[in-house]
Structures are given as C-alpha cells and as structure tokens.
Amino acid sequence: MSKSNTILYLDGVSVSFDGFRAINNLSLVLDKGEMRAIIGPNGAGKTTMMDIVTGKTRPDEGEVFFDGQVDLTRHDEAEIAMMGIGRKFQKPTVFESHTIEDNLMLALKGPRSIFPALFHRRSAAEARQIEDILGIIRLGDKRHELAANLSHGQKQWLEIGMLLAQDPKLLLVDEPVAGMTDAETEETARLLKDIARDHSVIVVEHDMHFVRELGVKVTCLHEGSVLSEGTLDFVSADERVVEVYLGR
C-alpha cells in the first residue's frame, strides 16, 4: 500500500487505556479529495481514532501519516491543526461568550502567534471570507449574537463554519447531525457534499439515512479495528456488521 496520494494513512495503529484496547491494529487509508463515512457501535473506537489523528492521543504502536509524508504521531494538536486537519467535536464546541463573527474570526486561517493577535485588525479580505462563510452556514443575520444563544443545530453549523474558516485539507466531522431535525439533516448533508468537492472529509455518524444521503464509501469499525469497508449497501449486507449492530 503506497502512502503517496493519500491524505490520511493509518497502519497497524493500536492504543490501550489501562489494559483496555480502544484501538486494535487499525488500518485506514483515505485518498486525497475523498469523503468517507465511518460507522460503528458505541465504543468502536471512532472518537479515539480522531483523537489519534488530531494529536490528542498518542498511539502505542502503528503509523499515522498525513498527506503521504507527515508523521502525525510526532506533532501536537496545534501543529496538526496548522498543517490542515480540522476537527468538529461530537458535542458542538464553540466559543459561547463570543459572537458568531468573532468565533469565525478566531478560526480564520492566518498567523497563530500571540503578538500578531494582539495588534490584529480585521482586513477587508478577512471580512469578505467571514461574510462568505456566514452565507454558507446561514447565520448571516445572527452574526452579532452570542454563540451561546444559538440552537443546537446552529451550533453544529457554526462549528462546521469554523472548520471552513480554518480552510483545512482534511476535515474530521464527528456526528454532525446529532440533535438535528430532518430538514436540517438534509441541509447538512448538502453542505458536507459541497465541502467535499475541494476537501477530504471523514464523517463519523450513526444516522444511516444521513450516511446514505452522503453516498460515499463506508467503513465500519468494531472493537477498535475495521470490520467492513465498502458501499453502504455492501457494508450493511455484511453479516458481521449486522451481528455487531443487532447482537445476533
């Protein structure tokens, strides 16, 4: 398996916490520009896998490469984020005491050191970018409202908007439609498909309708390793997957 032309390359990754193997010899490859949906029951290791990719957790063994050449296990969260991996948490995490606009401003791609931030003034280009993103996530009319006052679904979108502002090469999106109405879910699927046109994306989701709507290759995790991989129809026909989900 060649690493070149992959955006994300995990090989033989394992990590255990106090004897519990959260990730067990996991291998996963994502091509550049690909969107992938990851499903799996609770405790399958989906979030831990994201923790490993984003540098929050160090694997006990195995290789994790980004963009074919960068060894992610040697970098911390901030460095990995700067390389171009964005992450949306399972629980929407935005800066609640800031306005929507400020949330996006803090996420905008740019220098990440203290002194520029201290003397920063918003440029016209930045204002335009924020304007664009506000349009995409449909929060333009609430730009001066505090993020705390948004609904759950709106927070999810704001977080996705912050990812966009970061302009990453790879987006890790953890349960983007949890707690959304059907209409919102559809809207989100459309948004993600839009994004996937010029980004690589990994979506972790339980909602099968949503995954079907995305229409991409699916990987099913179980007990920390890949159980099945393929189209949604293929995976959901796989007996082992059925067994894992339904428990025989």
């Binding site: 916490f17 106090d18 519990f20």
Partner: peptide, 17 residues
Amino acid sequence: FIQKRPRGLFALKGRAV
C-alpha cells in the same frame, strides 16, 4: 512532578478520565 505527571503517581489513564 505535577507538571510532568499532572494526574499524580497512580493516575488512571484513558479517554474516560
């Protein structure tokens, strides 16, 4: 020491923590 091992000598590990 706390800065080296913020959760002490016999800390629990893992995501649950």
